[in-house]
Amino acid sequence: MPDTTEFKEVVRPHLPWLFGLACRLAGDDAEDVLQDALVKAYRHYDQLRDRQATAAWLRQILVNQVRDRHRHAARHAEEVPVDQDDESTSLYRRLVDEDPLPYSDSLHLDFLSCFTIPDVWAVLDDLPDHYRTPLVLVHMYGVPTREAANALGVPLGTLLSQLHRGRQRFEDALWAYAEKHELLADRQGAL
């Protein structure tokens, strides 16, 4: 087994962002998932050859843990959600068609400016895991699509499809959230 003190020194600086990522991917299970990931990292510490790659290595292990947990949950779910490939209207087109901010000169950009960072997370947190996880990894943490596909154990085409549908679901959810929380009404008053 590796030296515990040395291992702690290596991982400690990464704990804040690892915990953040774990919260985004695993919600209330974040601490458990991260703990499992750290134990696994400790056991396989000898596989880390390049210290410069520590962050990517730890991220890969954490994502593996999240993926295993999601798979386990899916096996025990009564119903596995499967989306059909649809051609839903894009949020941009809906904004142009419905014109919710009639006095805006830059409607689509003003719409997005209604959302705070906590709003964005609230919308994301309501998405199913198989959509939220790719979105978080690729669009929020900047993981390249090939690396994300590898980390999630899916073919690149599957990941790209999940990203595409996930963005559609995210856009739909943004609109619903704005209506529910009357973000547009507040914005109309400001314009």
Partner: peptide, 16 residues
Amino acid sequence: ELRHLLASAGEVSPPL
């Protein structure tokens, strides 16, 4: 702009 919004949200982590 949506991509920028997502990336901005990714820069804000819950505290440890």
